[in-house]
Design a protein around this nucleic acid. Structure first.
Length: 103
DNA sequence: CGCAGATGGCTAG
DNA sequence: CTAGCCATCTGCG
């Protein structure tokens, strides 16, 4: 079982309409490598199985990649989240702590 | 509000 | 084994 697989499993556990943060996942994995978590998402071979769109930053920002939220992947995430009852405003989660899922 | 530094783990050579 | 990368976080100005 690799580090990444563990990350994916946790992501799968995220219920619909909820989100989580990289730091939280990392902490749950008994580590502090939030970056490695993001790495796993980015390389995630389990495209739809691992809802990486339900994983956001600690402050509620969607994040995305490339440094800015100008990527298409981010927009896709937002749309999915909005569809799952998660309100997103300017790349940020609305009522973040309300939809934040604690493991 | 904006920027820089500090981290842990992964992939590729 | 070494070097570079990354979808982050936190603190400070």
């Amino acid at each position: 079982m690799k580090f990444e697989e563990r990350v994916w499993e946790l992501m799968k556990r995220i219920p619909k309409g909820k989100v989580t943060t990289y730091a939280l996942i990392a902490e749950k994995l008994n580590t502090v490598a939030y970056r490695a978590v993001g790495n796993a998402c980015r390389r995630n071979p389990y495209a739809p199985v691992v809802p990486c769109h339900r994983v956001v930053r600690s402050d509620g920002t969607i994040g995305g990649f490339g440094g800015k939220t100008s990527g298409k992947t981010v927009e896709k995430k937002i749309q999915l989240l909005r569809k799952e009852n998660v309100e997103v405003r300017s790349g940020r989660i609305v009522d973040f702590k309300k939809v934040l899922f604690r493991f």
